[in-house]
Design a binder for these strands. Structure first.
Lengths: 268, 268
DNA sequence: CTTATTCTAATTAGATAATCATTAGCCTGT
DNA sequence: ACAGGCTAATGATTATCTAATTAGAATAAG
């Protein structure tokens, strides 16, 4: 709530502010646009409303038709702005009789998505991903050991049981294990950590699946069991140490595989 | 429509349809129909190319005209897709003779923006932010203690000196301190951790600035000094412990201020 | 009579087409 | 060297059509 100065982070909308524009002849709810790109100006105005606290999730903003009139632009230009706002997770657009533009409901997955794209573009190595994931998750289990509810524990036990069932199926076990880690992070009740974990999860999936064998799976299972026990006993330090070692093992195995691969390529 | 080939992977974070997990085939259920708009389909295909490693920053993708022909849609529909891709930071669009669509260069600032929107909508607490930041930074200094180069150390010393100079100016000290933390994370040479830190940095700035006093600044300075010493001695464990305690202090102070504020509001 | 279901019509976004305006790099002619 | 025109690209408009969604009326069942 106390973040009024953040709206300036938007790239396009900030560079072309000319508040000296002619005043509205329209209904006065929105300023009519005269900027470098009209759609960016519209995005900026609606963002501003959100950060000024004038818009709350679920609020009806208008229809494409009505908004295009209010902003004084064509419907297509307004649609351009809506696509940007939608991609930014600021509004939701529905078709049909009761359709139109509404302020979006929060969706942490969206931040995870943005982060994943940037990591991809930057060409970040798998080692970097694992290290970052370790940071988020060590903190998460520390918190989980303190704040996990009974439901969290039940979910974790259930997920661990699914891991046991899948122990012979290498790929299935990796999937269930990731779900277990997700349950752990959820138990921390921290949406920022959850978003970070989700962002990295998709990227590390493949790398982990490559190194999976039934023997390793059984070792991982033991480790998961002990982490869960520590969380259940509210022993934050032990839980953090255990999950840290767990990640270090993953990193080491991955580094070994990587080295082996390089040797093989050199021989070939 | 030319090719509806790529229909896999759950990249619809921009156009969130049902996030419902797929059900098994056998249990009397049908496979969910892939109902999406043409522009979302185009976004999905280009995203897929990025995640398959077929697109690198700076690559020329095409012009609006050529792409609309290749995808078999009108130019306006393609523009809708481009607005979404642009908002996601996947492509950059330039006007003019040598213009067109190119794969974007990574821009960490974009996280801060995406995160700010989601925090605004979800109302994530500052405590959650601090906890997440703590996770990333503890891991970062651990790595920094192992991997920091001579240049990193020089940069850290220089930044610490600037902190010393600003110790009497509350706001200036917070700014220089944040820069010090940034140097620490940089010294870890992990872009994923750096990106996470950058995303959270803007959000915690104000909260930290509120709790700043010269007395506290001097204590913070000591702590920074000791962290840097640990990093210089390659003592990862001590560095991690120290920075963890440092964050815990920040969290505690913030919680105390928060409590005080609530009491004041109740009395008023 | 009440409740559940089906139809229908109104509303709204999705998409197309043709066209003009604006921008920016390139190139030519003095 | 540089002014000015050429050209290829996006930005924006208008008009029109299609597809999706739902409120509400009509209808059937209990």
């Amino acid at each position: 709530m106390t973040t009024p100065a953040l709206t300036r982070l938007d790239d396009r909308a900030s560079q072309d502010r000319t508040p000296q524009d002619r005043m509205p002849y329209g209904s006065g709810r929105w300023l009519q646009v005269r900027a470098s790109t009209a759609s960016a100006e519209i995005v900026g105005q609606i963002r501003q409303r959100l950060f000024d606290g004038l818009l709350k999730p679920g609020d009806f903003v208008g229809t494409e038709g009505s908004l295009s009139i209010e902003f004084g632009v064509s419907r297509i230009t307004l649609r351009d702005a809506l696509r940007i706002l939608e991609a930014n997770g600021i509004v939701e657009v529905k078709v049909g009789k009761a359709g139109g533009v509404r302020v979006a409901h929060p969706n942490p997955e969206r931040f995870a998505d943005a982060l994943a794209v940037q990591l991809m573009l930057a060409g970040i190595s798998e080692t970097e991903i694992f290290d970052a994931q370790m940071g988020a998750e060590v903190r998460a289990v520390q918190l989980a050991a303190r704040t996990a509810t009974q439901e969290d524990i039940i979910a974790l036990e259930a997920q661990l049981a699914r891991c046991v069932d899948a122990v012979e199926d290498a790929e299935g076990f990796v999937r269930e294990s990731l779900a277990f880690h997700l349950c752990l992070v959820r138990a921390a009740h921290n949406r920022a950590l959850l978003a970070q974990f989700q962002a990295l999860r998709h990227l590390s999936w493949r790398a982990i699946a490559r190194t999976s064998t039934p023997t390793r799976s059984r070792r991982v299972l033991e480790r998961h069991r002990s982490v869960l026990d520590a969380v259940k006993q509210h022993d934050a330090e032990r839980a953090a140490t255990l999950i840290g070692e767990h990640f270090q093992q993953i990193i080491d195995i991955h580094a070994a595989m990587r080295a082996e691969q390089i040797v093989n390529e050199a021989n070939a």
